[in-house]
Design a protein around this nucleic acid. Sequence first.
DNA 1: TATAAAGTCGACTGAATTGATCGGGAATTG
DNA 2: CAATTCCCGATCAATTCAGTCGACTTTATA
Lengths: 160, 160
Amino acid sequence: MRLTTKGRFAVTAMLDLALRQDNGPVTLAGVAERQRISLSYLEQLFGKLRRQELVASVRGPGGGYCLARDARSISVAQIITAVDEPLDATQCGGKENCLDEHRCMTHDLWSSLSRRMYDYLDSVNLHDLMVQQRDKTTHRVVVHDHAVRPGVSEMVRVQL
Amino acid sequence: MRLTTKGRFAVTAMLDLALRQDNGPVTLAGVAERQRISLSYLEQLFGKLRRQELVASVRGPGGGYCLARDARSISVAQIITAVDEPLDATQCGGKENCLDEHRCMTHDLWSSLSRRMYDYLDSVNLHDLMVQQRDKTTHRVVVHDHAVRPGVSEMVRVQL
DNA sequence: TATAAAGTCGACTGAATTGATCGGGAATTG
DNA sequence: CAATTCCCGATCAATTCAGTCGACTTTATA
């Protein structure tokens, strides 16, 4: 499990998509502009996301991308591993370069750590992020309107 | 927070150190040989670990490295951020390239995610890993005594 | 049917990072 | 003194990152 800006771009773009797909397919050009990510780079990322069946594409005018499944069933871990393909195979990974007892130490240690990290990222899904983001927006509006709509947002804020 | 093989090397080396420092300072040459990491690369990593005061060095014959503090007080997160220095400042990070409402989305989303990951890695310390590793070794010995040498790797393999 | 809007694909690029190598130091022990 | 070990800087090939470009396919609609 790697964690780089590449994964962040993908998660950000997917969240943008999730928040806007109610009005039909979302164009990459739109995502690129809103999130300040280069269009061509997005195309590469969405190529991978599409092959992993996290998004579906609609060609032609009025086309764009939609989530391929419910936001609740798409985890952050799935997004990240979709674009960061070489999962973690870079280590000794069963090859011949680590010998005797120590092979196991390195291998097990890291696979255990990285599994626990994966489990965490897998427990956060796109819908969670949408709610979190909408609350933030709401909160801003509330502050603007000064205190007409108390509720929802108050709590989430604290966590960040 | 980045998570790459560089961090894995550092954690592995620190664990090797922690498991052997009872007999005095541990040489990098020893770590290099046992863990199959190049000596010069280890020197670079330990330079950073020393500057972060996670390890202390002893020069001259019989010298080497020791943990600078108790294993319980050194977390995996500390090790990783020590060697992967540019913590996470690579994003929009308060700069001018993200505008209006969307700035907050990207920024808050990722800082929240990455903070939770950090918290997790910060909750695992070197002592935890030592215990985990020693248990595994013990377990292996038991199996070993059993049959005619059914292969050291047999058990450990399962987990992978 | 022609055109424009969109996705699709492949090749390529500059910059940064990874992991490694080398050479020469400085400190310490015996 | 000589050996051992840490320390530091320069350099390097390979890979990845992030972005660019050009050509192509699909499809809605004027």
